[in-house]
Design a binder for these strands. Sequence first.
DNA 1: ATGTCGGATAATATCCGA
Length: 256
Amino acid sequence: MKIASFNINGVKARLPRLLEWLDICEADVVCLQELKSMDDSFPRLEFEDRGWHLETHGQKGFNGVALFSREPLQDVRRGLPGDDSDEQARYIEGTQKGVRIACLYLPNGNPAPGPKYDYKLAWMERLKKRATELFNSEQPTVITGDFNVIPTEKDCYDPAAWLNDALFLPQTRAAFQTLLYQGWTDAIRQIHPQGDCFTFWDYQRGSWEKDNGIRIDHFLLSPQAADRLQDAGIDRAQRGKEKASDHVPVWVTLSD
DNA sequence: ATGTCGGATAATATCCGA
């Protein structure tokens, strides 16, 4: 079973690139972030004509997440629990072949400090609570998406330049580590313990050309999923294409 | 300090968010 995650930065702007990649990705389930589309204006037919089942959780202009799958998903749940007043579309869960899959777009949090950073930390606290429930269910579970967290210095081309950024502040990294300490496996680091493993290169300052990347798209696997981890990777080549997203797809394969 | 994108609103630019 292959599960992929891709922050596409606008489903309409990315349509040709996304369709092209979906045709070759060989994924059973695709987790998408930053759709920037409402559900009722989502270009569904483009994907459904190619055999994908869609579960979208959209919002006007910003955010938005979705699960695409080859077979219909079960028990789809939209929104991160813990704050009924939060209207930002950043979280969706579904089940495929007994594997619980959570797709998230964690708040960026800049500028920090400030209300946006407060929202990020509160969101991470809510995620921790939901992760505890998922962990305790003992169901094979995968939490993936754009975490907007650079976990360690080796996940950044120039850690000194990011010291005051919401993606790399000590409190941000600590909150991510707290998740890992629950017993989740960082699947991409597990498979690739050395090397950069960047997943994002800013559109500005020639970041891609200089390989000034960061690793912020992750897969967290519960013990029951980690036991089945076969491989994990990053489709780095997607970043070099015309009209590319600033993120690239990441993926894991689990044994059946 | 700035560089680039995508989207919304309103406009032939300007803002926000990233």
